[in-house]
């Protein structure tokens, strides 16, 4: 479905952030990308969604070469991208944003459905502006609601757990599991959270701009952390939760 071939990303006078990355995401898969900070995970997500253009390589989506397509064109073809730090807008309401995401004018009731999905009491939020009045956790959940509303072939989330409290986090796992029930749509989540890694079909470990390992959790984590027993290792736990 999504195929990255020899993708590199280099910033002038700086190090190469992605080095010759090859990756295939199959239809209906739930993939978690993990690895230390600065390893290139967010850059990879931004390259897939079109926010960044690779300096080398080719991206195909359902057989179409999308390497040179804009953010909008990729979105229209079915790629969604949930930001690590959601953007705030003065004057645009939660209802407006859900409408934009859905691509149609929804009734308050229909739009509220997506807020309920992410555990927000819809009547308290639907008319709120997406401004600084919303907390980090609230706006993050709204961000996730817009991705659910889009219901696209590929949804990429960049650290969806960041800024979310524990109660919401448990709910978040349920949301991803529900999205994963679709056999048509794929989910890619960049995360350090072991609970998310637990529920993914596969884990991809990225270090220094290279995919070092892909596979089931049990096989990936030891290599990533250079540790035989990461699940019971306090040091690894700290690294993962960092």
């Amino acid at each position: 479905m999504l195929k990255l071939e020899n993708i590199s990303f280099e910033v002038e006078n700086e190090k190469e952030i992605l080095k010759d990355v090859n990756l295939i995401i199959e239809k209906g898969k739930f993939i978690a990308i993990t690895g230390p900070n600065g390893g290139g995970k967010s850059t990879l997500a931004r390259i897939i969604s079109g926010v960044l253009k690779p300096t080398k390589g080719k991206i195909t989506f359902y057989g179409e070469d999308i390497t040179n397509l804009s953010i909008t064109e990729r979105a229209q073809r079915g790629i969604s991208f949930g930001f690590q730090q959601p953007v705030r807008f003065k004057g645009i309401t939660v209802h407006d944003l859900v409408n934009i995401a859905k691509g149609e004018d929804l009734s308050v009731m229909d739009a509220s459905h997506y807020l309920s999905e992410v555990g927000l009491c819809a009547k308290d939020y639907i008319h709120r502006e997406l401004n600084d009045g919303l907390s980090g956790g609230e706006i993050k959940r709204i961000e996730i609601a817009t991705i659910i509303a889009r219901n696209t072939k590929l949804s990429i989330f960049d650290e969806p757990e960041a800024g979310i409290d524990l109660w919401s986090f448990n709910h978040l796992i349920d949301i991803f599991m529900k999205m994963h029930q679709s056999k048509e749509n794929s989910i890619v989540i960049i995360s350090h959270q072991e609970r998310i890694l637990d529920v993914a079909d596969e884990i991809i470990a990225m270090v220094d701009g290279v995919i070092v390992k892909r596979g089931a959790k049990e096989s990936v984590l030891p290599e990533l952390l250079h540790c035989e027993d990461p699940k019971n290792c306090l040091n690894c736990h700290d690294i993962l939760e960092a």
């Binding site: 926010v51 953010i71 909008t72 979105a75 930001f83 959601p86 944003l97 934009i100 691509g103």
Partner: peptide
Amino acid sequence: IKLMTLGL
């Protein structure tokens, strides 16, 4: 960028 990732 955010609104463009939503298809605008």
